[in-house]
Design a protein around this nucleic acid. Sequence first.
RNA 1: GUGGUUGUAGUUCAGUUGGUUAGAACGCCUGGUUGUGGUCCAGGAGGUCGCCGGUUCGAGCCCGGUCUCCCACCCCA
Length: 457
Amino acid sequence: MKIDKPSIPKGTRDFGPEKMLKRQFILNTIRAVFEKYGFQPLETPAMENLSVLTGKYGAEGDQLLYKILNSGDFLSKVKEDDLQGGYKNLAPKIAEKGLRYDLTVPFARYVVMNQHDITFPFKRYQIQPVWRADRPQKGRYREFYQCDADVVGTDSLICESEIILMINEVMHNLGIHDFSIKLNNRKILTAITDLVGAHGKEAQFCVAIDKLDKIGRQKVEEELSNNGFSDDSIKKLAPVFEIQGTNAEKLSQLEKLFENSEEGKVGYAELRQVFDFLNNFGEGQYNVELDLTLARGLSYYTGIILEVRANNSSIKSSITGGGRYDNLTGVFGLSGVSGVGFSFGVDRIYDVMEDLDIFPKEYESSTKVLLLHFDENSLNASIKALAQLRAADIKSEVYPDAVKIKKQMNYANKKGVPFVLMIGEDEIKEGKYQLKNMKSGEQQKLSMEEIILHLSA
RNA sequence: GUGGUUGUAGUUCAGUUGGUUAGAACGCCUGGUUGUGGUCCAGGAGGUCGCCGGUUCGAGCCCGGUCUCCCACCCCA
């Protein structure tokens, strides 16, 4: 029998212990902040019925859905005609389930199914993997985690303000201090397209303007021109590109710009309200910047949108994003439920933190102390000590095999265990054990009480 | 989905116009040191040269296909 070299699917990854400890630090930090702001956990299945997923992400999104082949004789119901109709026609006949593409649509599905049990406003967070049949690239995978928090059943802009507070808290707890939150409003983007006489071309406008910082104004104007924007429209966009100053200054320019636009006025008022709430929450700097060129791809956003980037990192892509969607549950037959949510990109946050080298050291190992043993008596004493250490909630382990001290030491060294405890003949007699700091190399004889005190710090 | 690129030891990479038994560094294992790791010294293990086929007396090297990796675009976290 031929043994194949093992491999994992394209665009997927294993997370070894070292990476997991770091990822857990990120996830625990995010989870703690979510809960601090009153969000409750939710998990949904990895697979959804395909009918729940299709049509929610646009034509391109449907292509990126992973479909699950029906079990058993999946061809039994397929007729000759179905085969002639091509794969798009055939797929729904042989695959009724698919892997979730994001966490927002399954959440919407959950809200609709449980609408009579849920007390609104409903605040939930969800940390689970999602799957996309995209072509992998740097920072882009076919399986990756999302950390979403959403509020549904209220249109209060307190939610938007609190999202900004939460982002600030998470970033600071992670040690990412130099970052910027960009804020905009889809209503303003719609108002602008109307204002320049390109009514209904909002989608093309968003896609193009979103690239401004990447490809520059000229290329954006070219793209708009290629997508049916008249020269006159593009000329009228000038004030949008040129709006500048502090957030307050930008706001007052916006107010003027939208004198005759109902939608623009609403968009402006919403932004103003968010900034007012933020001021009430405290005088702190929230790293928020009003940016009219922020658009975000997902089409379901209808209100305020936001995006976060780390400033001094080589990772330029956004690490967090979100916004308000007025009618997400509408496609499942429940209308009038407004929601606002955002999502942390764990993989990108990981890359940024690795890039900046800011992972805290205590996450390099989970074990605090390794107990070394020399012979049977030593092992028995170590086991007793181990029980005491664990009773004191100190992460500790004993090397399972009777091997040389050198090897046991090496194990501690490689694993990044900061302390080793040596219990030999002399130590047992004396009732004091050798505690060695692996980093400094120092060691001292201490009683069990002293050791526990020392390691608890 | 479109275009380009890469593939040799666990890892990073050498490998001459095609020529005997494919190398280095790091890592790993053993010993020097039977109670002291991270330094040093000595020794050792480890390869279907991505895979399939073709050209050739002979292929890691040339040709075709395929898979994979990475990059750009599209889109996105």
